[in-house]
Structure formats: structure tokens, C-alpha cells
Design a protein around this nucleic acid. Structure first.
Length: 231
DNA sequence: CCATTAATTATCG
DNA sequence: CGATAATTAATGG
């Protein structure tokens, strides 16, 4: 974690997440005083579960994951995030602790923003607050789908969901470079890495996907969606 | 249906 | 080259 910039300011920033677009010029100048821009390398932890939640993170570029970890080695990837996106730990309004770990999957450009400055803007600008609530709501709805996926679907459906989410919500393309290892795909789908591996080669043999090294292309989107829906 | 185990192969640093 | 990741196959809850 090196490479601290002070170049530019929030007013001119064109990588703002949508909530910040609701801020007035003077509010942007205010928040500008309480932020650090930083570049994380692939694999670096941005913040860690069970540590004090003193900041919110505005990711301008890159892909990250949120993981819920127990004391041993059972990890669950809660969500994948693509910038621009504002990552706010729910703990800031509960117990001031981060309840998940945020990790860069690619190079991530982000601003670390003081949580007190963020809360002040929430109180003072209802437009900003509403946009933030709206973003939280989108995540809540996605969480319903994910909970359903992990509790009611079986292997093929879960892997299909993972691929569809990457394709539709993260990369907006049928072809993309897989940012997750097989282990991580397992942690995302609640399967073992061996099962993930086996399903992926079956998908390839069935002409559903093409795999070229780390590049994955969904060849038959309709069938993939059917598999997702049928569990 | 799917995890576990184990053995083998590929890839990374 | 040694370590780590991915694949494949066999077994059993």
C-alpha cells in the first residue's frame, strides 16, 4: 500500500460513485479534505473484518471482493464489486467494526474517506443519503437472490449463477478474464474447488463456455440462464 | 448430490 | 526448481 496521490479533487473527479454525484460543490470540497487516494495491488487487503471501521471506501477503478471469514479457514465471498462503487461497512451505524474483509482482485484505485465526514454528509444532504439508501437496497435485493442460490440450488446452478454475475454485473460482456481462482469460485458458490473445476470442464465439454487460460466466454447464454433457473 | 481424499499435472515466482 | 494452483478419479456419507 504505497503511492499516495493528492492530484485532482473530488469536484473534478469523473470516477465518482453515484451517491457522490448528488453532492454540492461545497460538499465535494469538504469531503476532499477527508480522503486519501491510493492504489491497491491485486491481492491486497483494503480493510479487514473485525477491525475498527474508521473509513468508507470509494472504489473508482478495479474489481474487489467482500469475504466473511470465521476463525479458521472457511471463507464465504459475500459479493463482487466493480468500481465506481462506494463500499460502506454496515458496522459504521452499529458497532464501528468491519463485518467483512475487502480485498482487491485486480489493481484497485480508491479513495479512503473518513467515516465521520461521510456521516456528516448523510445528515446534511438528504439527496446524498437517499442515493446511498438506494444503493444499499440494490445490494439487499441481490443478497436475497444469493441466499436463495446458496440454499436451494445445486452445483451446476450455483456455478452458472457465478458466471452470469461476473458476465452481467461485473464485466458487462459474455467474455471476460476470470478474476477469481478456483478456490475463490468455491468460496463464492459454497462448493469445493474440485467441484467447481469439474463443473467448469463439463460446461466446456457441453459447449456452454469456452476457456482459454484465464479467459472465459459464455457461448450459450440462454442455456446458462436455464441452468441457473433450474438450479 | 456433493465433499473428501489422493494422485497427477500445470503454472507461478 | 520448489511452491502453489488446477485437474482428474475414486470413494463414501
Amino acid at each position: 500500500m504505497i503511492n499516495i496521490h493528492q492530484n485532482g479533487n473530488c469536484l473534478e473527479c469523473d470516477k465518482k460513485c453515484s451517491a457522490f454525484k448528488r453532492l454540492l460543490s461545497e460538499e465535494l470540497n469538504y469531503i476532499n479534505q477527508y480522503r486519501f487516494h491510493i492504489t491497491y495491488k491485486k491481492g491486497e487487503v483494503i480493510f479487514k473484518q473485525n477491525t475498527p471501521a474508521s473509513n468508507v471506501i470509494s472504489i473508482s477503478r478495479g474489481v474487489a471482493k467482500t469475504t466473511f471469514e470465521d476463525k479458521f479457514n472457511k471463507n464465504l465471498i459475500l459479493s463482487l464489486i466493480k468500481g465506481p462503487s462506494l463500499v460502506v461497512g454496515p458496522g459504521i451505524y452499529v458497532d464501528n467494526i468491519y463485518h467483512f474483509t475487502l480485498t482487491a482482485l485486480t489493481e484497485v484505485h480508491a479513495c479512503i474517506i473518513d467515516v465521520l465526514a461521510f456521516k456528516k454528509l448523510i445528515r446534511e444532504n438528504s439527496d446524498f443519503a437517499e442515493q446511498y439508501i438506494s444503493e444499499m437496497s440494490v445490494r439487499a435485493i441481490r443478497n436475497y437472490q444469493r441466499t436463495f442460490c446458496l440454499t436451494h440450488k445445486q452445483m451446476h446452478g450455483r456455478v452458472a449463477d457465478a458466471l452470469l454475475n461476473l458476465s452481467q454485473n461485473i464485466f458487462n460482456a459474455p467474455e471476460f478474464e476470470m478474476p477469481l481462482t478456483r478456490q475463490e469460485l468455491g468460496e463464492y458458490t459454497g462448493l469445493t474447488k474440485e467441484s467447481v473445476s469439474r463443473i467448469l470442464t463439463k460446461f466446456r465439454d457441453d459447449q456452454l463456455i469456452q476457456m482459454d487460460g484465464n479467459i472465459i466466454e459464455i457461448l450459450n447464454m440462454d442455456k446458462m440462464i436455464t441452468i441457473s433457473e433450474n438450479g
